[in-house]
Structure formats: structure tokens, C-alpha cells
């Protein structure tokens, strides 16, 4: 039992150590901007199709479900604002983060894990490069830049999905849907809608890198690291969204 807690504390400590070094490296040269750009492409552009698809259908389904409930009160006109609030505050950031966790935390963990087990990380150190500077920091920066942007795309496409239902099925006009939806948004919504993906980005990239860098035990170990990275990153997305929402609801 005590061994288990010891391992847990030691892992927690290692994670913060990695996080600290990764952040400190942002302000330290050398900077590997080529790697940052490559990662931005892999994480941002690469995730775009799936984020658009998922965003559209989440708005689409949300509008369908809500219209049925709102119909009971004769308030189908409120479907725009409801879809908007739900997407911007919660669903947009969380769904996008989960997709990126599934796609990129796993990708990062397996890439770094393979490098670890084939001694490429040791080689990097032996040849004079700090692997955290070269591998972790670029992924951290790239995810922090791309995830908020992907979330904005998901929010917008989700709204379009909601509009499709409102227009074709509820027979609303464009201004009936978009005007109240736009008016309901407050500054507070923007802040939490963009703060969340930023924090999720830190967690997703660092968790992916952490499990990748501590991989051991050959190909099997790479598989294990990948799974752990996705599970842990996803759980943290849910836990953190609950915390952040709790803070903002009271503001």
C-alpha cells in the first residue's frame, strides 16, 4: 500500500519536474522553431477535419434535442442562444480537447515512447541536445497555440450545425437563429471559452510527453504509454473543466 502511494507521489513529482523544465525552456535558447511549426501542422491542421466533423454534429444534435424540449414551453426561438452558450462554454472546449487528447496525446506518447525505447532520447542527450528543449517544449507551445483556435472553429461549425436544424426543421430564418445567439454572449463566456482550451492544451501536451518520455519495456511499453496518456489526459480534461466552470459560474 505504502509502495503504491510512494510510486504515485514520485510520478506526480516527476510530472511537475518535466512541466517546470518545459516551461522554463520557453524563455531559454536554443529555440527549435522548425519543430514548433511541424507540431503546429500535425496538431492543428491535422486535427481540423475531425474537429469540424464532430463540431458540426454536436451542434446539430444539440439543436435537435433542445428544440424538442423547448417546444413543450413554446420557446423553440431560444434554440440559438442555448446551442451557443453550451458550445462556447462547455462542449466546444471539452469535445475538441478530447479529440486532440485522443489524436495527439497518443501520437506524442507513442512517438516519444518509440524514441525512448530505441535509445534516440539517450542519443540526443549524448549528442548535446536537451530532449525536453527539443521535443517537449515545441509540442507544448504548438498545442497551446492550436487548441484554442481549433475550439473556435468547433464552436463556429457547431453553430452552423444548429442552424441547419433550425432552418430546415424548425423553419427559422437566419436572423431568428443568429441574432439572439450572438446577443446572449458575454465577456465572461469568451474568457472561459478560451481559457479552458489553453489549460487543456498544457495538460494534453505535457501528459503525452510525460508518458512518452518515461516509457520502458520495448514495444509493449510504447502501447502502454499511449493508452495511459489518452486516459489520463481525458480524465484531467473533465476534472479541470468542472473546476474552471465552478470558478466562472460564481463570477
Amino acid at each position: 500500500m505504502s509502495e503504491f502511494f510512494k510510486a504515485l507521489v514520485s510520478e506526480w513529482q516527476d510530472f511537475w519536474f518535466l512541466a517546470g523544465r518545459a516551461f522554463a525552456n520557453i524563455f531559454r535558447s536554443p529555440h527549435y522553431w522548425d519543430d514548433v511549426a511541424l507540431q503546429m501542422e500535425a496538431i492543428g491542421v491535422g486535427s481540423l477535419p475531425i474537429v469540424i466533423l464532430t463540431g458540426f454534429f454536436s451542434g446539430f444534435v444539440l439543436a435537435m434535442q433542445m428544440s424538442r424540449a423547448l417546444n413543450t414551453y413554446g420557446a423553440t426561438g431560444q434554440v440559438g442562444p442555448i446551442v451557443m452558450i453550451t458550445l462556447v462554454r462547455e462542449l466546444g472546449p471539452v469535445l475538441t480537447a478530447l479529440l486532440v487528447a485522443g489524436r495527439n496525446a497518443s501520437g506524442i506518447a507513442s512517438e516519444l515512447g518509440s524514441m525512448k525505447v530505441s535509445e534516440q532520447i539517450d542519443a540526443m542527450r549524448a549528442l548535446g541536445t536537451d530532449p525536453i528543449q527539443k521535443l517537449v517544449t515545441p509540442r507544448l507551445i504548438a498545442t497551446c497555440v492550436m487548441l484554442p483556435q481549433l475550439t473556435i472553429v468547433a464552436d463556429f461549425v457547431g453553430m452552423v450545425g444548429g442552424f441547419a436544424i433550425s432552418y430546415f426543421s424548425l423553419r427559422m430564418t437566419a436572423s431568428q437563429y443568429w441574432t439572439p445567439a450572438y446577443q446572449i454572449l458575454e465577456f465572461n463566456d469568451f474568457v472561459q471559452g478560451l481559457l479552458k482550451p489553453f489549460i487543456f492544451a498544457i495538460v494534453i501536451s505535457l501528459v503525452g510527453c510525460f508518458y512518452g518520455m518515461k516509457t520502458s519495456g520495448g514495444t509493449q511499453g510504447v502501447g502502454r504509454a499511449t493508452t495511459q496518456a489518452v486516459v489520463v489526459a481525458s480524465v484531467w480534461v473533465f476534472v479541470l473543466t468542472a473546476f474552471i466552470t465552478r470558478i466562472f459560474v460564481n463570477l
Binding site: 530505441s118 535509445e119 534516440q120 539517450d122 542519443a123 540526443m124 542527450r125 549524448a126 549528442l127 548535446g128
Partner: peptide
Amino acid sequence: VRANVGVLFQEGGLFD
């Protein structure tokens, strides 16, 4: 200090 040492890793350790 390591810059004075060359290392061949077990499987080559090449960056793929």
C-alpha cells in the same frame, strides 16, 4: 564534456 565522446548505441540510436 560529452562533446568529447562519440557514442554508438546498441541499435544505432539513429533519429528515424
